[in-house]
Amino acid sequence: MLYYKNNKALISLLKNIKKKVSLSRSRQELDAVISELKFFSGSYQLNTKVYWIIFTVLLLVTGLLGYWDWSQRQSFQQSTWIIIAAGGVLTLLSGITAYYPHHLMSKVSHALLQRDGLLDNNLTPVTFNGKTTARQFQQRFSEFHRGNYSREIHELFKGSYQGDEYSFEYHYYHFHYVDERIVTDTYTDSNGRVRTRTRREYDHYDRYGLILPFGLLRNFAVIGFSLPGAGKATYKPASNRFNKVFKVVAASEIEAAKAMKPTVVVAFEELSNVLSKVNFEVNDAADLCLSFADKDLIATPNKVKISEFDAFIEALEGEQEFQKLKAALSHVHYVMTKLDSNF
């Protein structure tokens, strides 16, 4: 492609960084990538004006030519067809040439900020097999008994949380599942007879969550979104607001009443303002799966691009906070402290 010299060098750098960012696992590795970006001797600005001008001119010329020929005879001559087709291809190529570098810059900027955000929040990617891990999680939690067609873990990160009273390690996951359903359509055939036919449809869903050793409860769930296999509510706290969103399922009413202290109830009310479709499930091994529908827990809040270089480096050098992740973790910690009696 015929970019200016600086564009060419910058695009090559961006492609190189894109590859390296996806492979970086530690702060040192990411810092090395950022240094490479900092040592780029050219400008961080892409100059694609010429390609946009060519794109606009080609679009106008091809359009006008087509319009003129059509207005003359209400059809296209064969030569016009050829010109329109050639013009169309050239317009498309110039459009892609103008757009691609900007797209690449956005992608690389986002990838760098995202990786930096993960490291700022002590999250490291885990190597895993999506289907096997989903099966393993399914054996541990009802939350993963979803999807009659397929179940897969798409993302898995390991993190650690340091609270005032408790510290714990956790896994953040992205769970994708598919439901298959058979749909019956009615139609009229060429002989005018009404017939039916069936086809399979696939509905794709995503859930996200945190898994960690909880320790203070067993076989206990606060359910804000349908949980496969969960029975009827065993206990109803006094709060109308809580009962509108959640139901509590535990081994016994007394156990549930003990756990659902007023502070815990209000903490769940607050959590439902931050996260949607929340389930808090503690299994028989006292491990917790806090699941929800929000996909932006570990998404970088920064939108700045490499082209705004100083602001971009400032964003990378500062601490990025994943606010929702912090809220979810502090909720878990808070519930832990409330369930741990002093006497």
């Binding site: 706290p237 006094a238 709060s239 109308n240 607001r241 809580f242 202290k261 007023p262 502070t263 109830v265 209000v266």
Partner: peptide, 11 residues
């Protein structure tokens, strides 16, 4: 807990 119970009562 009393503070939270009062908050629930008020709600």
């Amino acid at each position: 807990n009393i503070g939270a119970a009062i908050r629930i009562f008020n709600q």
